[in-house]
Amino acid sequence: MADRLFAWSMSTCAFLVVLSLLWVLGDVVTEGLPHISWTFLFSAPENAGRAGGIAPILVSTFWILLIALVVALPIGLSVAVWLSEFAPVNSRFANNTGIVLDILAGVPSIVYGLFGNAFFSIYLGMGFSLLSGGLTLACMILPIFVRTCESGLRAVNNDWRRGALSLGMTKSAAIWHIILPGARPALVAGLILGLGRATAETAALLYTSGYVDRMPGSLLDSGRALSVHIYDLSMNVTGGDTAAYASALVLVILIMTLSILAQGMVDRWFKRRLVVS
């Protein structure tokens, strides 16, 4: 009896969660879908975004994300590999790095925005630019990416490490050929988590890449990311609601596509390493 009550309340909770998600999604789809068209995707915003489309915004979003990924991926993976494979067990430095990463992962994104503004925009003189925004996002997603990858690497079967070493393989060969592929699910999870956070980020970008909605001419131009656009339309532009909904729908689709793409790309890359000789 108690079991059934328990199971019942659990499944009700699960049902409520799914329901609320569907509600939000349904809301975005019903309000946004009618407004989406090729012109919306491929033309510039007019009248502060009430009319026109989001082409320059998509381009800016793309560049910001690309910069964030290109910077965060190699650095994050290196740090994760160092922490799990090379750092001495009781190294104070490694432990402190871990603690600092955990703290950084919990810092609100607006703080990253202020930091990015002070450091990239002002101190390094990048101004309000895609570069500054992308680098700020890279800083923001690094901690969670590192921690996810690191725990995935640590969970890799230790027997494989000993096996590889006892075959006279170098540690780096073992990591490259066996440990990294072995940690694939965690690496994918870290990537998707980081990508999702970066794509959805608003606060950190307000202070760094700015909200100019023109088509960016270079990485040093200011550009408006999709999430900033949605924020602006819904908070500052009266009558911008339909455009905001449509943009939100595009954002949701973008995040889902990116996740699937990331998963697929990582999988394919590792599959090749796993089977083919």
Binding site: N157, D159, R162, G163, S166, H177, P181, L274, S277
Partner: peptide
């Protein structure tokens, strides 16, 4: 060296 628990790599037999 051979270990107590078989530890083939998560690769193909060939690889």
């Amino acid at each position: 060296m051979i270990f107590q628990k078989p530890n083939p790599f998560p690769l193909s037999i060939w690889r």
